[in-house]
Design a protein around this nucleic acid. Structure first.
Lengths: 207, 207
DNA sequence: ACTTATAGACCGACAGACTGTCGGTCGTGA
DNA sequence: TCACGACCGACAGTCTGTCGGTCTATAAGT
């Protein structure tokens, strides 16, 4: 039977379903049939709202990243919190565990989802680098950091973090923990922060 | 008509052809028909030598990266060259421009080739990090560097370099040059090298 | 030297699945 | 009642991977 809805609503229904499927089954392994069966629409309807399967992926990524970046910006602009805490919190806000669930971080990084992964990363890095750069510059004015090329350096750190902290490299908890520790140590070095200052802020916030 | 060849030879013919096509057209847009038409074999023959299209991609990447890593190792083990020069040369050996041609670096990083890109990067990083780590440790013994966590730090630098120096981010020459400069500056900082020492070695070698 | 056997390389028709298209239909608000 | 936006589903075209069977080079037996 035929159910008519407003375009925006249908679009979101499709995106909701696609998101679940892309994340649980992978982008390549999800067929457009899977999506339209689940939404309960016909083939033509799907292609009435999106011009291709890839466009669905793009829209989905923009929705997810848009929300994440908005959240990060909100935290970053709360001047009532010390800069160093805000930096840690901003980064934590991107750790998708919080609200979208572990599934994403676990599933997105499988080899099959390379395209999805690359797009999410590119989009997220572009959005978050300026926010963090501003924060670091603020911290430098307060004498917390000493850094010559903030933008490029932040980009370097963020890009590395995005790639390295994907689970695809190892599941060994110890190696991962060490990697995080070294990452913080190196970050302090690059930002010209006092040794242990970031680590302290982190432990302080998450205990 | 039917031409019989040794398995190894056919395999290489297929890989040669696939390499050209994957690089010029992209992995997704290259069909197995494209490959087998060009090689001049039947469908069944292709699947006699490779069990899937993706396995062709994997074999191709291993071939390319194997050659690159062998070359890098050769340079790295030549103790007649000063360590710092060897480091620069080892990295330079990975810059595919040299023998496989610009095409790869130009084409591999298009969004369509995400899978290929990811696999090449992962494979290359895993191969090159130990080589560079050894070199850096050698340099530390000579008092050139001062570094607490060599392996993780090298990994960080290599991973970043792989991601950042893809052309996908910008074609603006000036921005790219600055990025390289900052990368060298930060590398010196992380390795605990004298400021400008890496840059000097680089300019020295390539003038 | 001449048949016969065998294993490895090769063939191409086919099944099954998938994406995107298109002409046409239905519902709803003006 | 009219028009437009939402919706439908059959269909074309393409793609990957399979399978039963065929060819050929080499080794063995006579």
């Amino acid at each position: 039977m035929r159910v008519v809805k407003e375009a925006a609503e249908r679009r979101n229904e499709i995106l909701d379903t696609a998101e679940k499927l892309f994340i649980t089954k992978g982008y390549d392994k999800t067929s457009t049939n899977d999506i339209l069966d689940r939404v309960g629409i016909a083939r033509g309807t799907l292609y009435y709202h999106f011009k291709s399967k890839e466009e669905i992926l793009n829209a989905m990524i923009e929705r997810i990243n848009g929300a994440l970046i908005t959240k990060a910006k909100t935290i970053a602009s709360d001047t009532s919190i010390p800069v160093i805490d805000r930096i840690v919190m901003t980064i934590a806000a991107l750790n998708v565990d919080t609200d979208i669930g572990h599934e994403i971080i676990d599933e997105v990084h499988k080899p099959q989802n390379a395209l999805m992964h690359q797009k999410m990363q590119e989009n997220l890095v572009a959005g978050i680098v300026p926010v963090l750069t501003d924060l670091v510059c603020e911290g430098e004015k307060q004498g917390l950091f000493s850094i010559r090329y903030p933008a490029e350096t932040i980009e370097m750190l963020v890009l590395y973090a995005c790639t390295a902290f994907d689970d695809r490299y190892e599941t060994d908890g110890a190696a991962k923990e060490k990697r995080i520790k070294v990452f913080l140590y190196n970050t302090e070095k690059l930002l010209g922060a006092e040794e242990g200052s970031l680590q302290k802020a982190m432990i302080n916030l998450f205990r």
